[in-house]
């Protein structure tokens, strides 16, 4: 059954799909899987989000951008709540999001999910987003933001960011 609140919720999701990540502007927060739920309580709209990394400084800005997007669309009573469980994982990233990342020059997370091993080499090869070669190497486990590590392609020699599996 389609109720008016269902239609309203759908409308809000469409608005949220326009909000982008401040660090990686090709991705929307919907692509990232940050929005966990939308609830309507009377005239209050509650958006439930989950942080990607515990200390990610982009989260405050994302919350503010959500608020602004909803304000622009006529909502005034907005509540943003944050939940920690279940913990965010790159498995929630949409296929569309992975495609956009690659076009932007960032290697998308490989499908192997969950926390990585605490020691030893990776069991998979990260693919170069420029030339698609799998002959690549990790330069640093940590990159310009918490969600990325730094790689270089041994074939085309381009350095690139890899969006880590999480």
């Amino acid at each position: 059954m389609v109720t008016s609140s269902n239609i309203e919720t759908k409308k809000i999701w469409t608005i949220l799909e326009q909000v982008t990540d401040p660090e990686i502007p090709v991705l929307t927060i919907a692509d990232l899987g940050i929005v966990r739920d939308v609830k309507i309580n009377g005239d209050e709209v509650e958006i439930i989000i989950t942080p990607t990394y515990t200390g990610c400084p982009a989260m405050d800005m994302i919350a503010m951008n959500i608020k602004l997007a909803l304000l622009e669309n006529g909502y005034s009573n907005i509540k943003i709540s944050s939940v920690l469980a279940p913990a965010w994982t790159t498995d929630w990233m949409t296929e569309d999001g992975k495609r956009k990342l690659k076009e932007y020059g960032i290697a998308p997370p490989q499908s192997e999910s969950g926390p990585r091993k605490w020691r030893g080499p990776e069991s998979f090869h990260v693919q170069c987003p420029q030339c698609n070669s799998s002959n690549t190497r990790c330069i640093s486990e940590f990159g310009s933001t918490a969600c990325k590590s730094l790689y270089q392609c041994n074939d085309c020699k381009e350095p690139f960011d890899y969006f880590k599996c999480h």
Partner: peptide, 23 residues
Amino acid sequence: DEQIAAIAAKALKEVTYHLRWSS
């Protein structure tokens, strides 16, 4: 305690990296 469990589960993924890097 659900909140402690949630914080720990989330942080564990990050700490795995720290341990790997420092090792």
